[in-house]
Amino acid sequence: MTYVIAQPCVDLLDKACIEECPVDCIYEGKRMLYIHPDECVDCGACEPVCPVEAIFYEDDTPDQWKDFYKANVEFFDDLGSPGGASKVGKIDKDHPIVSALPPQAQEA
C-alpha cells in the first residue's frame, strides 16, 4: 500500500508535502505532484500538510479519484526508481489522466 496524490493537486503544486516527506518520494511533474509507490514508506507525514487535501492512503482514495492511483504508479513506468525526487528535479511530463484535464481553477 502507498499514498496517492489526487486531482486537487493538479495545477496547485503547493509542495508542502515535499518538505515533510522523510524519504524524498514525492516527484514534481508539469501540473501535479506524484508519490513513487516503491519509494513511499507509508509514514503519512505528507497527508496532513496538504492544503487542499489531495493526498490519500491508497484504500481511502475517494471513488471519483480512484484513477489517480494508476496515474501515480504509471508516471514512473519509464523513470524507474531514481531513489529520490531531489536527484531528478522537475519532470517535464504528466500522466495522460492529468494531461487530459482542463486547467483547474484555484481559489483566490
Results as ranks from 00 to 15, higher is better:
M1S: 15
T2C: 15
Y3G: 00
Y3E: 11
V4E: 11
I5N: 04
A6W: 05
Q7N: 09
P8Q: 06
P8T: 08
P8Y: 00
P8M: 11
D14F: 12
D14S: 09
K15M: 08
C17W: 03
C17I: 12
C17P: 11
E19R: 13
E20I: 03
E20K: 10
V23Y: 02
V23H: 00
V23F: 13
V23W: 02
C25P: 09
Y27K: 03
G29V: 00
G29L: 09
K30S: 10
R31T: 07
R31D: 04
M32A: 13
M32Y: 03
L33P: 03
I35R: 02
I35K: 10
H36C: 02
H36I: 04
C40D: 01
C40G: 02
C40T: 02
C40W: 01
V41G: 05
D42L: 10
C43L: 03
C43G: 11
C43Y: 04
C43V: 03
C43F: 07
G44R: 02
G44C: 12
E47P: 04
P48S: 14
P48E: 12
V49M: 10
V49D: 08
C50F: 06
C50K: 10
C50Q: 15
V52G: 05
E53W: 14
E53D: 14
A54L: 10
I55A: 01
I55S: 01
Y57R: 13
D60Q: 13
D60W: 06
T61L: 15
T61S: 02
Q64M: 13
Q64G: 12
W65G: 05
K66Q: 12
D67H: 11
F68A: 06
F68G: 07
F68L: 07
K70M: 01
K70W: 01
K70I: 13
K70D: 11
A71V: 08
A71D: 14
E74L: 14
E74D: 14
F75A: 11
F75L: 09
F76N: 02
D77T: 12
L79P: 03
L79H: 04
L79Y: 04
S81L: 05
S81F: 06
P82I: 13
G83W: 03
G84N: 05
G84W: 04
S86H: 15
V88R: 06
G89S: 14
I91P: 00
K93R: 14
K93M: 10
H95I: 09
P96V: 13
P96F: 12
I97Q: 09
I97N: 05
S99C: 08
A100F: 06
L101W: 00
L101K: 06
P102I: 07
Q104W: 03
A105L: 06
A105W: 01
A105H: 01
E107S: 15
E107D: 12
E107I: 07
A108I: 10
